[in-house]
Every structure is written in structure tokens, then in C-alpha cells.
């Protein structure tokens, strides 16, 4: 079968090419489709990290639900129009910001010897199977779990309120 390294290279290439195209495509439908590709690539990377559960959830939630919603809105608004070029100042600034982030994040790690050496995995640690993750969610991360559920509820109420067509007698 695939060696882990090959799988890593293939999946990260998919993720990065997808991401680059999201940024550069003029047509929002094409951008959305490339984003789906990028998400699938990242899901593959999760698989190579031994997090198959997260990979499947990534495909289901991101590619299957969130991006379908995006596509739905794009089609609903019929947005085939190409947009004008962005501001040149913003463009330059963004590249600077991107490179700065890259340097900030990647450089110290690439230099640290511990990370460059093959780390010794702790085999006693609970693996990322559904049972272990669920245990964590209901014990160690119980509070964030509740907060996130509250957030989802609030988001749902907010989304319904925002998307509601205002009544005639109501000002916008």
C-alpha cells in the first residue's frame, strides 16, 4: 500500500493546490469547488495522522454540509459575476502578512532539534478512536463542550433571525 510519506506528500499537495486556487479563482463557484478539494486533502492528512474519525467528520461536515451550504447560497444569488481586482495595497500587505506568519510559525519549529528528530510516540496514550474522544468530551472538555453547544444554539437563532424576510410594516 501507500507509504506514509507518499500519502503525506500527495494529500498536502492536494490541500495546498486547492487552497491556492480558492484564493485566485474569480468565479466563486470554482473557488468553492477548489475549497472542497482542499478540505479533502486535509482530511487525508488527518488519516495519515491516525485520526480517521476526524477525517470522516471533516468530509461529512466541511465538504458535505458547510460547502454545500456555500454552494447553495452562491447558486441562489446566481453569482457568476467576476469581481474587480483587489486593492494593490491590500494585496501587498497580505503577502507580507502571509510570509510573516509563515516565518513566525515555521522557522522556530524547523530549527528545533526535538521536532526534526523522529519523535518517540507514546504507545500507552489513548488513541483517537471514537470512544476515547467521547470520554474526553464528557469529562475533561465538558465545559467547552457545553459552551460550544450553547454557541450553536445562539448561531441558529441568529441565522434564522437574519435570514428572515422582514415584514412589510417593519423597517429593515
Amino acid at each position: 500500500m501507500l507509504s506514509e510519506r507518499t500519502a503525506f506528500l500527495v494529500f498536502s499537495a492536494i490541500a495546498l493546490i486547492g487552497a491556492a486556487n480558492v484564493v485566485t479563482r474569480k468565479n466563486p463557484v470554482h473557488a468553492a469547488l477548489w475549497l472542497v478539494g482542499s478540505f479533502l486533502g486535509v482530511a487525508g492528512l488527518f488519516l495519515t495522522l491516525g485520526a480517521g474519525l476526524l477525517g470522516a467528520i471533516q468530509v461529512m461536515v466541511y465538504a458535505g454540509a458547510i460547502m454545500v451550504l456555500f454552494l447553495f447560497v452562491i447558486l441562489l444569488l446566481n453569482l457568476d459575476v467576476t469581481e474587480g481586482d483587489g486593492l494593490s495595497f491590500a494585496r501587498g500587505a497580505s503577502f507580507l502578512a502571509a510570509i510573516a506568519t509563515l516565518a513566525l510559525v515555521a522557522l522556530p519549529f524547523a530549527q528545533s532539534r526535538e521536532l526534526r528528530a523522529a519523535a518517540t510516540p507514546d504507545h500507552a496514550a489513548p488513541d483517537a478512536s471514537a470512544g476515547n474522544v467521547a470520554d474526553l468530551l464528557f469529562t475533561r472538555y465538558a465545559l467547552p463542550f457545553e459552551v460550544v453547544s450553547l454557541l450553536l444554539l445562539i448561531a441558529m437563532v441568529g441565522a434564522i433571525h437574519l435570514a428572515r424576510r422582514p415584514r412589510r410594516d417593519e423597517s429593515v
Binding site: 467528520i57 465538504a63 458535505g64 447558486l75 478512536s129
Partner: peptide
């Protein structure tokens, strides 16, 4: 024979939407 069998079914069925949606678009 994978650990996440049922999730694969759900994932593939949600990817399948793209076929119809994109065909329509």
C-alpha cells in the same frame, strides 16, 4: 473493514450531492 465504516457511508452520501448540484449548475 475499517473502524469508521458508517461514517464513510455518510461522508460519501454527502459528497454525492455535488454530482446533482453541480450538474444542475
Amino acid at each position: 473493514d475499517t473502524d469508521i465504516g458508517v461514517l464513510v457511508v455518510l461522508a460519501l452520501s454527502s459528497i454525492g450531492v455535488y454530482g446533482i448540484t453541480l450538474g444542475g449548475w
